[in-house]
Amino acid sequence: MKRVLNKSMVLALGIVLSFAATAQAWSYSSYSHGSYVPKEGSSTKVNYSDYFTTNVGFTLDRDNVTNILDYNNGGDNPGSDADNKNAYLTLDQTAKPENTLDLEIDASSIVSNLPDPKYDLEINYVGVDCDESEVVALGAVSAKSYYMRTAWNDYRDGGSSDGGKILSQFAMSTKGLSDYNNVVQSDVVQDTTSYGDFLGQP
């Protein structure tokens, strides 16, 4: 009986851990980090049995929308980097692993309600695992709530440097952040989500 109870407890704990979610938020009082950067947003990380998701939710207000549409049309954009270039709202989720030679996670999917999104799952380190997921919204945005969610294959097995951080940051780009010369990126990271050394660990 005792043994059965223990197994049940372990199973229940496993289920709780596998769907454990962590959430955090950012809030700015001004547009000093970019007229296109939403003042408020949040991130949620949810663990499943062999992958986890990082969801960045945000609301674009009227000022954001006016400025983003202005960037879309090119012409005299704020600063000088994007002048006379058609730039589009870009959100990037980038893993910064403790061990860049063995990533242990792999961006495998992106979902968003942004209009006409161009997605990229990119490899910046060695191997076949994608460390970066990116969306560029090519359609006209509205004043409403949007989200971008990345699913990461989870290969962590408890190695001392299997963990890392996932940074989410907004930018305006002409075709994505791979073309660094054509990008205006927020001066701060909007969200940093940590992941531990073990499978399913927050």
Partner: peptide, 28 residues
């Protein structure tokens, strides 16, 4: 890429070809 509808929102999903691909899409 695939399409889903959430009320009036058009969702676009990108996914890499892998064994549990459709399962991930459905969860996403």
């Amino acid at each position: 890429q695939c399409r889903a509808l959430d009320g009036n929102d058009r969702l676009t999903i990108a996914v890499k070809q892998q064994k549990n691909m459709h399962e991930i899409v459905q969860k996403q």
